[in-house]
Nucleic acid binder design. Structure first.
Lengths: 227, 227
DNA sequence: TTCTTGTCACCTAGGTGTTAATAT
DNA sequence: ATATTAACACCTAGGTGACAAGAA
């Protein structure tokens, strides 16, 4: 069995409509897909991998900008989905490894990157921007038998967490998603308005919060109460 | 067969008497031990690992400081070696992997760290400061046979490159070693006096070369001509 | 005196959203 | 108009030798 890590954070994003940036060079997911695994044979070898399947057959588009909302928080259907991207798969870099190894700590897919470049040759996952995707997690038992191909059907298990669904985008559409990313991703700390909790601790006189100040004056929408 | 990478740099250090820093938290080696491997069975599994054996049974000490030399460049024998440290081994983190995987690129032991902490529980290599060591590189063939233990003797090969010998130290003794490390290790770039080659390219007005200026006025010994 | 330790400024390496310019 | 790109300031994370203080 498999348990999704940071489920509370995934739920919070999912409630707003998770968006994941895709770039030409490849962008990591945030939250990162991480799981705890139970019930493996400690001595057997397993491959762990992920893939992404379309949630529906639709292409989405941003809602028109009103006078007061810079970006709206919902989506319009723009039509039928674009041609499917190459259905790539991301093997966890530690694969193959023993069950004991996989189970003794959280398995993190933080090396996985998303791209919209159909010609990508870095092995990244290729997705269509403005389409919705469902991440899937697969566990493959490495069968030591010589005729293992015959048992391929029974040697893997697939796990789907619906709360990890997202829309691939090249720029964030929902400002609340942006704010939640900024609030929860350590690498976006530079864009935080203020974190009263540990601000005095981390504060260095040399660091000028230029962008933060700029962002503050720029964005009329207040950020959600998330720590 | 195995080929040592950066042999020219290793030779340059070895000629001066290579020193490697050991710290409580663990310190990487520089140069990093890297090899190219040839002649593996592409489909077979191998484990790659390193260990470190004493070169001799001696403890060394710094030569007394003369009036003109802040640190001398040679060593005195201080007596018999201290009790041997726990003989740890460092498995390359990609182990086990197929021969094809190992051979298709340079194998780098840049995660290996040296410590002088006898109670280290981070899995680092424990060495005695002021003792000389010889790194060794081992290739272990993962024998698929059930009674593989019986063939252990013929299933591994050891490679020794004498030019990678070094003295473990907690602070550099030979100033020329320090200068060569600064000149050749990218992470020590902050201590470079000046590199006329690519200085205009890398120069940013904001970066004040404070330490470099200080070091310049502090060290009477000129650095070797190394780029 | 010699050796070790902990802190520091200065780097490398790379992950963020922002922004302006460009493409569609 | 909407969508994408590329450069950028600001971070995280961690590898350097210098230095001062401490230990042996």
């Amino acid at each position: 069995s498999v348990q999704l890590e940071m489920k509370a954070l995934w739920d919070e994003f999912n409630q707003l409509g998770t968006e994941m940036i895709v770039t030409k060079a490849g962008r990591r997911m945030f939250p990162t897909f991480q799981v705890k695994i139970f019930g493996m044979d400690p001595m057997a070898d397993y491959m762990l991998l992920m893939d992404f399947v379309p949630v529906d057959d639709k292409r989405y588009r941003q809602v028109p900008r009103g006078q007061y909302a810079f970006h709206s928080s919902s989506w319009l259907v723009a039509g039928k989905a674009d041609p499917a991207t190459p259905g790539r798969v991301h093997y966890h870099p530690d694969s193959p490894a023993k069950g004991a190894q996989w189970m003794k700590q959280i398995v993190s897919f933080d090396k996985l990157k998303l791209t919209n470049n159909l010609l990508d040759d870095n092995g990244h996952i290729i997705l269509n921007s403005m389409h919705r995707y469902q991440p899937r997690f697969h566990v493959v038992y490495v069968d030591p038998r010589k005729d293992s191909e015959k048992y391929a059907e029974e040697n893997f298990k697939t796990f789907v967490f619906e709360e990890t669904r997202f829309t691939a985008v090249t720029a964030y559409q929902n400002h609340r998603i942006t704010q939640l990313k900024i609030a929860s991703n350590p690498f976006a700390k530079g864009f935080r308005d203020c974190d009263p909790e540990d601000w005095p601790r981390n504060h260095r006189p040399g660091a000028l919060p230029l962008m933060s100040a700029f962002a503050r004056s720029r964005n009329p929408v207040s950020s959600p109460a998330h720590q």
